[in-house]
């Protein structure tokens, strides 16, 4: 699944399951949903980085975001949501393991409630549900602190 440009407006979000929790990411930073591919691992000391995958000729780091959101370690058979991180003046693609069920939704993001973690940028009402909209940068930083 590749996100079409006309679906990535300011009020578009990708809904996904991370660490057993349904959350939303701004569609504008999402590149694609990649099929299960080999996770390459090697020694490192960066918290939350599970390894790397190779996608479209790029080496993409994989963040085990589920460890922060749900405390669950993702299984080996998984899809990857590829999202863009802004690192200073450069952009780096990053992958988050997901279960493969993703959908696009539009709506107005509301501010997060008080006391919510910094990685919650806001909330999005989808039907009867209120989903956390993730701030990927803060999520990665939260992981680093935990």
């Amino acid at each position: 699944m590749t996100m079409a440009a006309d679906n990535t407006g300011r009020n578009s979000f990708v809904l996904l399951h991370v660490g057993g929790k349904r959350v939303a990411l701004p569609a504008g930073i999402v590149g694609e949903l990649a099929p299960p591919v080999r996770l390459h691992t090697f020694p490192h000391t960066s918290p939350l980085v599970a390894g790397v995958i190779v996608r479209r000729g790029r080496i993409v780091p994989v963040y085990d975001a589920g460890l922060v959101l749900g405390g669950k370690i993702s299984s080996s058979q998984r899809f990857y949501l590829i999202a863009r991180r802004q690192l200073g003046k450069t952009i780096e693609w990053s992958a988050i393991p997901v279960n493969g069920e993703c959908e696009l939704a539009t709506g107005e993001m509301q501010p997060p409630g008080t006391g919510r973690p910094a990685y919650v940028a806001g909330t999005l009402a989808v039907g009867q549900e209120s989903l956390d909209v993730l701030n990927l940068e803060a999520l990665v930083a939260a992981e680093a602190k935990s």
Binding site: H44, T45, S46, V49, I59, P61, E92
Partner: peptide, 17 residues
């Protein structure tokens, strides 16, 4: 990748495929 921020930045020149 810049996601790697630990000791590995001094361990490795980079990655080969």
């Amino acid at each position: 990748p810049q996601a790697f921020t630990g000791e590995e930045r001094s361990w490795y020149r980079g990655l080969a495929y």
